[in-house]
Design a protein around this nucleic acid. Structure first.
Length: 214
DNA sequence: CGTGAGATCATC
DNA sequence: ATGATCTCACGA
């Protein structure tokens, strides 16, 4: 049973609020857990964030910007919180991150999984070139439970690297969704990161069906 | 310039 | 469990 159903009935229109840079310009672990239940709005799709991971460059061997290492790929992480960091992974997929904290302190939150609440057919077409009613149960189950999938259904690629999270093109809403339990866990697929492997910097909504790795 | 690895996904 | 697929970062 999903915490959120695929309908917008749980959203209370009176409580809508676009998150601004004050939200992102805070400690990354707080932002990562506070993002759960918030809604990404972009390109005809709205989706609730249900799983995130924090990456804190200065101290984190799992982060592209470990020890403030700056490269062409990760330079966006050094900007002030409130922009998107997108990069190509495994030659085929993209990952969406929200940059956090102040300028020069390279941190971000990876959006690992979402639950679509509006524009469901649009999202399905981008993932499978079919509408929702044509999907198999397996395709429905795998619609949005992974970082590469999030980028597909929101039409995101490296072209959006560095873009603001506070424009009509893309913004984050606080719809007042709360009342769920948050699970803290080890991050996924960073086996190379030595001691940072064991940091509990992955956050997800307990009981949600759209979690990437059980 | 060569090389290896990677914050993944779909299929076997 | 494995193949797909390619950019980036690094070292020679």
């Amino acid at each position: 049973m999903n915490v959120f159903t695929c309908s917008n009935s749980i959203l209370n229109p009176k409580e809508k609020l676009m998150l601004d840079s004050n939200f992102f310009n805070r400690p990354t672990l707080e932002v990562a857990s506070d993002l759960l239940g918030k809604v990404i709005v972009r390109n005809g799709v709205k989706a609730v964030i249900v799983e995130t991971e924090a990456y804190i460059g200065p101290v984190d061997k799992g982060c592209h910007a470990y020890h403030f290492k700056k490269t062409k790929r990760n330079e966006v992480m050094f900007s002030c919180g409130g922009v998107a960091y997108l990069y190509l992974i495994y030659g085929m997929y993209y990952c969406l991150n929200f940059v956090t904290e102040g300028e020069g302190f390279p941190c971000a939150v990876l959006i690992r999984s979402v639950e679509v609440v509006e524009g469901l057919d649009t999202a399905c077409r981008r993932r499978y070139k079919k509408e929702y009613s044509q999907l198999s149960s397996r395709q429905i189950r795998n619609l949005s439970n992974g970082p590469g999938k999030v980028c597909m259904l929101f039409n995101l690629s490296s072209a959006q690297n560095g873009m603001s999270l506070q424009t009509d093109d893309m913004y984050i809403e606080d719809n007042g969704i709360s009342g769920f339990d948050i699970v803290k866990a080890k991050r996924i697929n960073i086996d190379y990161a030595e001691e940072a492997r064991d940091f509990l910097w992955r956050f997800y909504i307990k009981g949600n069906q759209n979690i990437s790795v059980k």
